[in-house]
């Protein structure tokens, strides 16, 4: 019998941008059409030497403002937003800096399966009854020259009570946990948060097993 073993990853290398990058893919709101609270995410990627890393491919994936994923596996009754796909891509510039414009996602259930039954209990409380909810968060994939394959992390939002009970954050020692919670940003006007990514060493970002 043939065994189907997942294909090995390899580095994205330095020369991908003409193949993978398209204008506007770092704005998930479609120029402000998505419903919900607009958030600007800014950050910088650095390596173990402290130097910024350019041409890092960053992809984000998230639920809409109602906590619904635009994907058939999320068959809950939380509302879909036809103007929000939930996927964005960008690359870091010469100073290692990147920027996304998105909306703040709603809370989503912790379970991978049976989402609809969990969704129906939302009105009755978001952490009770064994139905664990995740704090609003954004999944992040990181690819770069010098990374042999993908790194995975998550961004959480500052000041969220639900961060204290989030199942993914809870698996991280307390001192490290705060590194996944974005800091208030310095952008004027729009709500702005800051999320720096340290690939190695002092202040290293916590990464998850794929």
């Amino acid at each position: 019998m043939t065994k189907y073993i997942p294909t090995a990853g390899q580095t994205v290398g330095p020369f991908y941008n003409y193949a993978l990058m398209r204008d506007g893919e770092n704005d998930l709101t479609g120029g402000g059409k998505a419903s919900g609270e607009t958030v600007v995410i800014e950050g910088r990627v650095t390596e173990g030497s402290g130097a910024p890393v350019r041409d890092v491919l960053l992809e984000i994936w998230q639920a809409n403002s109602h906590g619904r994923y635009n994907h058939p596996a999320d068959d809950s009754d939380r509302g879909l937003d036809e103007n929000f796909r939930g996927f964005g891509r960008t690359l870091s510039d010469e100073d290692g800096c990147f920027r996304f414009v998105t909306i703040k996602p709603g809370a989503v259930p912790a379970e991978g399966a049976g989402g609809s039954s969990v969704g129906e209990s939302a009105a009755g409380g978001r952490t009770g009854g064994g139905n664990v909810w995740q704090a609003p968060h954004i999944a992040i994939s990181i690819f770069a020259s010098g990374l042999t394959r993908r790194l995975v992390t998550r961004l959480y939002f500052p000041g969220e009570d639900a961060n204290a009970t989030d199942p993914a954050l809870s698996g991280i020692p307390e001192g490290d946990r705060e590194r996944l919670i974005a800091k208030p940003g310095d952008g004027g006007g729009e709500k702005s948060i800051r999320f720096d990514i340290v690939l190695q060493g002092e202040g290293e970002t916590p990464f998850f097993e794929e």
Partner: peptide
Amino acid sequence: VRSPNKPQYKLPRTLTEATGP
């Protein structure tokens, strides 16, 4: 200089991971 030093944490398999673009 780009490989993380620390071991990676376990990520629960949630709806976030079971979905994608």
